[in-house]
Write a protein that binds this DNA or RNA. Structure first.
Lengths: 204, 204
DNA sequence: CATGTAAGTAAGTAATTACTTACTTACATT
DNA sequence: AATGTAAGTAAGTAATTACTTACTTACATG
């Protein structure tokens, strides 16, 4: 992969993420990448095509959720609740630490908007989301098999889990940390509800 | 309220929702409202100001969640799980039936994007979200007091609940119904997890 | 040295867009 | 009949934007 091309792709990711597809200008992207605007067109033909290439370029990088799961592949005797708590905090940590991730998250967010109008975009988005949900529901299936988790639809459980993290990280992005309190405490509370439910014991 | 003004506000809501703020043109909005473009500027001065007025105009209408809760104010002896199941299905039904709601949801979605750049927008969005979360967590507080729900942070419970519905309705909007199965079944499964948790009884 | 390649510079085109100005039409109130 | 008001028509302005063309510079390779 060309260095100049890569720099343009990275810049495009950033600018698309912060301005949206319509709001992003090729001039801004070129500026961000430190190339002449014309170079951008020579390499990528059109703005539309650039978006497509950014998507392809980041397809593997987006699957960060998959990496997080490799942590658990070996450890077998750990408590499920503890494991999820660790997973949740790792996700939160990844979101906090890496500024790159914030850009990616916002880029994804932009894809939601753009996906409503452009089928190729929604397709790319769909396969990315599946990439997050699939390993998680496979993990849940395993836990059910191991008798650590009660029999529920594993995909529904995965969606519930992912919903929370997507939604709250979105809110944190828009409102800063003012909307919630401390990250880890909030996650503790979610995991508590997710694992034990909200009902009183005798009501079940 | 002026009839023409209202027609412009309604049209603006629709166009902002489907095109985003940047993508929406004043020409399109005027067309949708069946007025001359110049009328739009006479009444609302600028595109920015129009967005602001749309926000103000819809502030009360957005609080649909509040209405849904009035259903429960009187019934006291119903099972909490059943109640939540009904609430969930009502939300889903409202989303399915009313086409207006789809526009509002998409408008809200656009606000997330726009809110990152414009503080007035994120402010309006914040107060709207509070409007959804507040009655729900008050409801949970009541249930805890009545001994039907175990002691958890009611706000965290509300956010978990809302996360699921916001996220899945977003996905349905972008991907159609292909991403999930039947609406009601999916909700049943979520409520099951939300109320009972995912752990096996002996693991708690 | 000669040639090819990747990049920049500069200027420009055609379309779009938010917004303005000047004037007209239709209707309602005094 | 006279006046005010809310709307339309038409034309235009200044800026922006995606994208193009023509030419130049720098560098690497044969």
């Amino acid at each position: 992969m060309d260095d100049t091309e890569q720099r343009i792709l990275d810049a495009a990711l950033r600018v698309f993420a912060s301005e949206g597809f319509t709001g992003a200008t090729t001039r801004r992207i070129a500026e961000e990448a430190n190339v002449a605007e014309v170079t951008l067109f020579r390499k990528f033909k059109s703005k539309k095509n650039l978006l497509k290439e950014v998507l392809i370029n980041n397809r593997t990088v987006f699957s960060s959720m998959e990496d997080l799961f490799q942590l658990f592949q070996n450890e077998k005797d750990v408590n499920l609740e503890t494991e999820l708590r660790i997973l949740g905090k790792n996700i939160a940590k990844a979101m906090r630490d890496k500024k790159k991730d914030s850009k990616r998250r916002m880029f994804m967010f932009m894809l939601f908007e753009e996906g409503r109008r452009r089928p190729e975009v929604s397709e790319a988005l769909s396969s990315f989301l599946q990439m997050n949900i699939k390993p998680l529901s496979e993990y849940f299936d395993l836990q059910i098999k191991n008798g650590k988790m009660r029999t529920t639809n594993s995909r529904s459980a995965a969606i519930t889990f992912v919903s929370y993290f997507v939604y709250t990280s979105l809110l944190r992005e828009v409102f800063g940390d003012s909307f919630f309190g401390e990250h880890d405490e909030e996650i503790e509370r979610f995991i508590d509800i997710f694992t034990k439910g909200i009902l009183k014991a005798e009501e079940k």
